[in-house]
Design a protein around this nucleic acid. Sequence first.
DNA 1: TATGCTAACTTGCGAATTGCAAGCATCGAG
DNA 2: CTCGATGCTTGCAATTCGCAAGTTAGCATA
Lengths: 105, 105
Amino acid sequence: MACSLDVFGDRWTLLVVRDLVMGAERFKEFTASPEGIPTNVLADRLQRLQHHGVIEQVPAADGTRHPAYRLTAKGKALHPVLAAMRDWGLAWEKGTRAMLKPKRP
Amino acid sequence: MACSLDVFGDRWTLLVVRDLVMGAERFKEFTASPEGIPTNVLADRLQRLQHHGVIEQVPAADGTRHPAYRLTAKGKALHPVLAAMRDWGLAWEKGTRAMLKPKRP
DNA sequence: TATGCTAACTTGCGAATTGCAAGCATCGAG
DNA sequence: CTCGATGCTTGCAATTCGCAAGTTAGCATA
């Protein structure tokens, strides 16, 4: 538990992972999320997640030369955690909704 | 997701909830956990959890007049979240172990 | 009554982390 | 060769954190 929290026990990390699950791959896509993560925090979290082996940087996905980020197996294994948190929020916090379907399943 | 993180999206809150699930009820018991939460942070988190309806303060459990803290239904509903995080940690973070059985189930 | 002990907080303060804004650096399009 | 878009990095004020040191209250012993 405590070790897991060392990896993603803060306000932003799990939101980044959520965006990855939802299909985000590029820096701009994360900043476009409604919560509005500061760019310096995002850069830090991406580095940290990479360091923990939760995500990996792939050099060039499409035509551009900008990096893309993908979940590793370790990162994909976080899905149950996210699902549990989403379900709890939906059940107990009023006025919450969720986009249930990932863009790229 | 984001709303859930508003409630427990920080380093200490979920550790407090974990201790509650494990049977802790009193201030001293939380501070005794191996992670060593600072007392001011603990006081703040207990207040915040109470404010969010995750825990409740019961005036006197045993002979003493010190308060005890208990999970509400909302708090108990966090169990799947904790379980998912524990399982992920055990599966992917090396050298982790867990005390699987709560003292008071 | 004085003295000590423990539990449960609160306060103070230096250090680290955050959020916001602005500033680079690179690339392809025009 | 300028322009806009993208992907970061830097600076700085403000919040939060962690540690240590009080403070308060209820027994307890003498």
